[in-house]
Design a protein around this nucleic acid. Structure first.
Lengths: 213, 213
DNA sequence: CGTGTATTTGAAGTATGTCAAATATCGTGG
DNA sequence: CCACGATATTTGACATACTTCAAATACACG
């Protein structure tokens, strides 16, 4: 069952030792909404471990997963004092949170966030290219390569996302994502042990499809 | 005619006084490519005046305009030591450039960039929602509202972009963009004196279309 | 082992893309 | 200042990739 989390207390997870500090660590289960688009932006957060997705909604309920985050990535960004996105864990996760004004007081934190923002901005630029100009098959190929760094060649990737979540990330429907997986299987580019266990079989063809990744 | 610019000398524009400094100001004409995706990322840049677009290309030539920049915005970001995007002026522009290592030496610069990166990251999140989940008509409405801040109500907006550039920004074709403009005219939401002069007639309907902007 | 959820697959509809032609606009030189 | 050629925009007709709706299968959990 999906659940929310109270930002101040961190319930229902175990609490770290120094509750009233401006640094706070959270241990969160999978499928927990850590913060909500539109809420007053009190804190800025870093993923220490696990995976988090940022989502935005349109008034009629259409959803976009705007960013996928892993260890080191930063979220809880504000536009007009309010969180610009909701954040939900995909896996159990450890998260560090800081008061927003800690940015002025802590130069090491500021420097780290600066580097990370640059990296995340570059990823968003790539994602704009994916969303604006790639076909469904290309998008799914790009998505799988992005989740499967060059290091883990031959390994099997465990997807922590449903077809619906992948679709919302890639700007498609869940049916189109499913068909794209089937097409990649048919062409021999990937093998699926189960719906959420992918192995990339032909990396160079995947690369070509994804237009360099 | 579109032209390139040599990053080091700033030709063919007038040169500022302190050429070998790590800060350098450039005056650039419209339609000049200030830097190229893939080139070694030596400098980081701020728009002082004018408008700049960042673009990415796929191997087969498909293009995405990933970001539109105005005064204060930062570009020249690096992924693996190389520029992640090309940057081209839309209007005559003034640009300040810094050596990349100035980030460590100049805390004021770092603090400014941090704030700006946060803002630009939020804009990219919105843009992902636009590209992933909005219809053509909604995208164009969103685009026009974004260019027409609430302040200048009733004013006429001079578009500095062709239909092709708008299409590449919104993930559409130029024909679809043109049809969307025509549809907005037909519905009485906008008035076009000329193809590149837009006045928003019915702001609330535009807002509704764009799903709050 | 059964029940509910996620995924796959099929058939049909639609928004947007593609190709093509007409019209409008801009810049240039006579 | 006007006329011309070049470029940008609009509009139309048709094609198609993706969506929508629906049903069958696979999978996970109690």
């Amino acid at each position: 069952m999906r659940q929310n989390i109270d930002e101040r207390t961190g319930s229902p997870t175990r609490q770290p030792s120094f509750v009233e500090s401006h640094v706070q660590n959270l241990r969160v289960a999978a499928h927990v909404t850590v913060l909500h688009e539109g809420d007053p932006a009190r804190r800025i957060m870093e993923v220490v471990e696990g995976a988090v997705m940022l989502t935005k909604l349109l008034p009629d309920g259409r959803r976009q997963v705007v960013e996928l985050l892993g260890p080191g990535d930063v979220f809880g960004l504000a536009h007009d004092e309010a969180y610009a996105c909701s954040a939900e864990t995909l896996t159990p996760a450890t998260i560090t949170t800081h008061e927003r004004n800690a940015l002025e007081r802590d130069p090491a934190l500021a420097a780290r966030l600066l580097r990370r923002f640059e990296a995340q901005l570059c990823v968003m630029h790539s994602h704009a290219l994916v969303l604006g100009r790639m076909s469904a098959l290309e998008r799914v190929a790009f998505f799988l390569l992005r989740l499967m760094p060059d290091g883990m060649v031959g390994g099997t990737l465990r997807l922590a996302m449903t077809r619906q979540e992948i679709a919302d990330f890639l700007g498609l429907t869940l049916e189109t994502v499913s068909r794209a997986f089937s097409e990649l299987k048919r062409r021999g580019l990937v093998v699926l042990q189960r719906a959420d266990e992918v192995r990339i079989q032909d990396r160079s063809s995947m690369r070509r499809l994804a237009g360099a990744a």
